[in-house]
Design a protein around this nucleic acid. Sequence first.
DNA 1: AATCCTAGCGGAAAGGCTTTCCGTCGTTGC
DNA 2: GCAACGACGGAAAGCCTTTCCGCTAGGATT
Lengths: 344, 344
Amino acid sequence: MKDPAPSRPARLADVARLAGVSAATASRALNGSDRGVREANRVRVLEAAKSLGYTTNIAAQAVARGRARGVTLVVKGMPDDYANPITAGVVSATQRRGLPFTLILAGTAPADLVEAVNLVRSHRPEILVIAGGRATDDVTIPALVEALRRYEAEGGRAVLITQEGLPFDTVAYANRKGGYDMATTLAGLGYRNFAVVSGFKHGITQRDRTEGFVAGLADAGIELPADRILIGDFNRDAAYAMTGDLLRRNVAVDAIFAVNDSMALGVLTFLRDTGDPRRVAVAGFDDIKALRDVTPSLTTVHLSWEQVADEALELAVSPRSDSPRTRVVEGHVIVRESTPPVVS
Amino acid sequence: MKDPAPSRPARLADVARLAGVSAATASRALNGSDRGVREANRVRVLEAAKSLGYTTNIAAQAVARGRARGVTLVVKGMPDDYANPITAGVVSATQRRGLPFTLILAGTAPADLVEAVNLVRSHRPEILVIAGGRATDDVTIPALVEALRRYEAEGGRAVLITQEGLPFDTVAYANRKGGYDMATTLAGLGYRNFAVVSGFKHGITQRDRTEGFVAGLADAGIELPADRILIGDFNRDAAYAMTGDLLRRNVAVDAIFAVNDSMALGVLTFLRDTGDPRRVAVAGFDDIKALRDVTPSLTTVHLSWEQVADEALELAVSPRSDSPRTRVVEGHVIVRESTPPVVS
DNA sequence: AATCCTAGCGGAAAGGCTTTCCGTCGTTGC
DNA sequence: GCAACGACGGAAAGCCTTTCCGCTAGGATT
């Protein structure tokens, strides 16, 4: 137990020797296998391992097995965005299943994602989950598809958490419907003059949410002038700035729909920094946890990210199917203080 | 470029064959080495790799080299706590240096941390960073120290982001001083009746912050009755509940210091949910990003987590020293709306 | 008692990469 | 024109684990 720290890690052969068995038996005893090991030997191996402070060399294990255990998640974008609910969901879903977890961050440029997938390929994990919306003008899609194809051909299982449409198992969430429902809800509350704070032009997530919202308004008999749809970066600070641009134009607006909660918070904070936030209603999308602590509490589309992540892992561990499967998780509108009923 | 997806990943030998060189040369060309490779060969190898869609098998590389490139971060606690600034800091510091990053989550029990370190050992990464405070009554410290000793003896570099005191390179942040400064600042603003919302009993972070705060009050001639220090779990929801307990006791309190921002948000939200938030001042600690979007904006102790993470990596990549080094990062109080000057 | 199974074990190969050690070849210096 | 040297390529020996396959011993079966 207290031997002087070795200058190289104990390896399986050391354990085997100390336990008086072969490396093969030690391997079976330590890291499981269908083959049986006599109880007495199993115990001796475990004790030997403990006394040597042995830990399996995961890299060697991965080489021998041809694949590393666990889930690798690729996330687009910045790490300090506290409002990344997908990551949190995947992490905890992975934990629940007792799978090792690795996070790889990709840059925000489309090509970065391809690069990240290839980095993942070099790790050879069993499961690869990619989170984050696509863009319509993404010229790297063919390259991405090819990289993922290769990954799957090599025996990995890829699942996308994003819009449907790529030839891989996908968990999507109902962006369009969420936007639609939000629109009808807000209209039902009495709002009439809307603006949408949206993300950069070609992002499919923001496009779908925006289109759904516009469609919902239309069905409620409200038309949204094109100049009321603001386009900027897909984050809080951009939303903050866009709100300023909007209000400086002095247009009549009584409700702003931001295509995600982070952006809604930017809108809310801008309104607060410059006047009474109650004057203009604000709604978001995602229902991130941070919403609990802001005032007014924010109306949003609730999405169960836990469920999204769970379905993703379920797809990943289920037997491979011949054609890609898609699961869609639906959200529902939660009305809170930021959109009080309009009294007229 | 467009060969049908292979059923097994291309390996180095395939690249070498296609390029018409040996595996040794291909290795040198692709993954660097002190040895030179003739330019013409280098180019041919790179082209061959590209056309085969080759990615280095990182596991095999790690086996051969005896160590895996990159940084592994061990974090204690829940993933969905959006207010974990250390993780964000380490992730982006790691990105900046172009190092591969892996995240391992440990449970909240002390023994989980030891287990996590051993899991890391089995990955054999160059650098291990552990984030998260210790507890005074942690009986697993010897086991933790032994696991880390082994890791370092095996050639790894461990850095702790936590309180000083363990025999490893450490980046600490000035908890006591921050608490002290916060106390004198609040006293200077005119507050007299304080309460502290603190985390579970034996956590050193919360203890130091609390003790510093008490000391600061004492130096300002204010005594804090013991029953004004509330102990609960170290998170927002517990703080929310504790605030209720406190106010139900109907004690005179005009300012509450929460030992971190997450908890301060819980306090703030409780106050808001049940009355006028302005009645009691609230201060936190950490200056997490989410603060920007709450009202009233929160007085807190700003800590540069980027700097903390940066110093940690700097320690990790610098030559090993014979005795453990400690760097302390200091914070400073930022007064915001949640603690307006007292008018008397 | 003779035969057949089966569980358990060990030797050895495989898995993909790095790195050392030589050998070769072209270049430099005199 | 020759010797010495430096640069580079390749064969092969690792690195550590898993897994295939063959073998033994002991129990079950008849």
